[in-house]
């Protein structure tokens, strides 16, 4: 995982929690969406946290400080709906914690009690813990191997909280399979849940439809209708299938 601070003054000024950007590296590069982790409008920078998962993310991660990104455009998508819901449970897995951070901050500033569950395979993959703690009333850390926090999957942490106290909204960001299980769990407890989806995109501006998902039986475009949707309505199986289109 690599953290990038990118000079992009216009985006730094206009972006809100939940927005993403399209990044392209090199003239033969692919356009890939990344959700913004934070921004500094005074310095004119935005922050992205990128995990090496394939050719295009590898290309970004090979950039050195001072290098240029060939193309960067945004902010795209709809911003997160922020209001005082009461208690908000944020469930972030792996690199998904980065785009979760601005939501945690905005939810806290709106007066919510924020409980965050951070999850990863092991201790080294838990990121941004200090920043998350700054805006969370409570943080629960879950690792698959038990090398840090509690041993277990993210759903175990989420369930602990739901069983313990009333939760008005759950926000989940992470790998699609993780969001699917979080969504199934919160549905059982009738906790309204929002998931930020990370589908394949080409243009990212509503033109191609590569990112389409079925939400409540209707086809939606993640780039312009999302990226956040009512998780209980999302057809995660179809989304997981479509994510494997080029594998």
């Amino acid at each position: 995982m690599v953290k990038f601070e990118i000079e992009a003054p216009l985006i730094a000024k206009s972006r809100k929690a939940g927005h993403f950007v399209m990044v392209r590296v090199g003239k033969k590069g692919e356009r890939v969406p990344y959700t913004i982790a934070s921004s500094d409008p005074i310095k004119g920078t935005i922050t992205l946290v990128i995990q090496r998962v394939g050719k295009s993310s590898e290309k970004v991660c090979q950039l050195e400080p001072g290098d240029y990104i060939t193309d960067l455009v945004g902010p795209l998508g709809k911003a997160t709906h922020i209001e005082n819901f009461g208690t908000v449970l944020c469930a972030g897995g792996g690199v998904g914690v980065a785009p979760m951070l601005p939501i945690i901050e905005a939810m806290k500033n709106a007066g919510n009690k924020v409980i965050t569950v951070l999850a990863a395979r092991n201790k080294d993959l838990i990121i941004l813990e200090d920043q998350v703690r700054k805006f969370s009333d409570e943080v629960i850390v879950m690792t698959d191997d038990g090398s840090y926090g509690q041993k277990g999957l993210i759903t175990a942490g989420v369930e602990q909280v739901i069983q313990r106290e009333p939760v008005n909204l759950c926000v989940t960001i992470g790998p699609a399979i993780m969001m699917k299980f979080v969504s199934e769990l919160t549905k059982k407890y009738n906790v309204p849940t929002v998931a930020s989806l990370n589908t394949i995109m080409v243009d990212g501006t509503g033109m191609c439809g590569a990112c389409r998902v079925t939400v409540g039986g209707v086809t939606k475009f993640v780039c312009v209708d999302g990226p956040e949707f009512d998780a209980h309505q999302v057809d995660f199986d179809e989304m997981l299938m479509r994510l494997r289109a080029y594998n």
Partner: peptide, 27 residues
């Protein structure tokens, strides 16, 4: 929404804008 079904915009954007038929293109 099956894999392999796509809009003409997606198909043509991949090929024309992103030069996806070029083996060196990442798209």
């Amino acid at each position: 929404n099956l894999i392999g079904v796509m809009s003409c915009n997606e198909y043509l954007t991949r090929v024309n804008l992103m030069q996806a038929a070029d083996p060196e293109s990442d798209t």
